[in-house]
Design a protein around this nucleic acid. Structure first.
Lengths: 207, 207
DNA sequence: TGTATCCGATACATAGATGTATCGTAAGGT
DNA sequence: ACCTTACGATACATCTATGTATCGGATACA
């Protein structure tokens, strides 16, 4: 009766979104034909237009999904760490930051997809607002745990927590992107980016 | 005889390159048709294919030109500052960094074009190498002046100059991109980015 | 088993982009 | 003044993507 959203329909949409994530990452939004996405998902365009209005609508949904996943991943991780009492005397702040940063696409394709989203945010005013809003959420989640550590008296910052968190995010992004360019595999990518990030952390905290 | 590269031919190529810079920035490499570029330049596609082999070739030339301009702009500025003896006792390092960073496209379109180049660097291995190489040049130019300041005994760094320079570049890029997203006009863009950059500088130097 | 419905496949009409081949014209040499 | 060459415009053939309209089959329900 009231469409319980047929099981297989949801599945189709999910597969199309997944395929789109890959194809968009590989060749870009404009470079990707609807057909290419469908082919990757194992469908024809009939399935596509039955589920989405246009390539653009699909992209917006995908971007929203990616954002939501990233933000909530960071948030739950922060909550876990806080609840699990990881903020004890001997904890290594560099390690903590890396643990948080490692969530969220730092594989090669993930970086490319995020870049595609970022460039869309640059071109599309409205989309840009949403992108920045989502980023502020992430920053504030990170700032929160930083603040918790400071409040616990484990260390002191040379900057406001928000500012520090923003810098961490930007440096993290910059390093992952450059790592992906150097064609390193994912493990190295994580590691080399982490090294630089560690230096920034040492910079941020007061000895 | 030996084609002295007719005056008007060089001019045509320049106009096409300039138009391409605009159009690529606005709608992206894949989103831009050859025709759109030609129209912007006031030509038809006949002129285009008479001067370039493909859109891709044009893009590569444009990217090379942009890189070259940026690197040499920074380099000559560094030389100017060094030669002019700007590294005196009372100089403000924050100001210096901002002066250097302000060169190189920090207008809205410039940011978008650079992003387009960056994403290409992510997708194309060979191009990525070139991109990173060019960036290393910039970083080392910046590191040089930082080093000069340190050598002059005006201040001390908490990090190697190269690392500091890299962080400066990344933060600068991150801030300009986010500024452009917020839809600020160019002046504000420069300013808000500069503020954050200033904080990083204060972080980098030892009090 | 019959039937209604939903969903994805197929076929088609259309639009837009690409690249090439040809043409006209303006500049330069003799 | 004539001829040649260079350069950009025009016209055309091809290809690819898009979106829609229609069809076929599976599934749910009686």
């Amino acid at each position: 009766m009231s469409t319980p959203a047929t099981r297989s329909r949801e599945n189709t949409r999910a597969r199309l979104l997944e395929a789109a994530a890959q194809v968009f990452a590989e060749v870009g939004l404009d470079g990707a034909s609807v057909e290419a996405v469908c082919e990757r998902a194992g469908f024809t365009r009939g399935a596509f237009y039955s589920n989405f209005e246009s390539k653009d609508e699909l992209f917006l949904m995908l971007a929203a999904s990616v954002s939501e996943v990233r933000v909530s991943a960071v948030r739950t991780r922060v909550e876990e760490l806080t609840a699990a009492g990881a903020l004890v005397e001997g904890c290594d702040p560099i390690d903590l930051v890396q643990q948080i940063m490692e969530l969220g696409g730092d594989d090669r394709l993930g970086v490319m997809l995020l870049s595609e989203i970022r460039i869309r945010a640059l071109r599309d005013r409205q989309f840009g607002e949403a992108y920045l809003a989502q980023e502020r959420e992430m920053v504030s989640s990170i700032a929160q745990i930083v603040d918790d550590i400071v409040s616990a008296g484990l260390l002191r910052l040379r900057l406001p927590a928000e500012t520090a968190a923003r810098m961490l995010m930007i440096i993290w992004e910059g390093m992952t992107v450059r790592g992906a360019m150097a064609g390193q595999d994912d493990a190295q990518l994580r590691h080399s980016g982490g090294a630089e990030l560690g230096r920034l952390v040492q910079l941020l905290i007061e000895p």
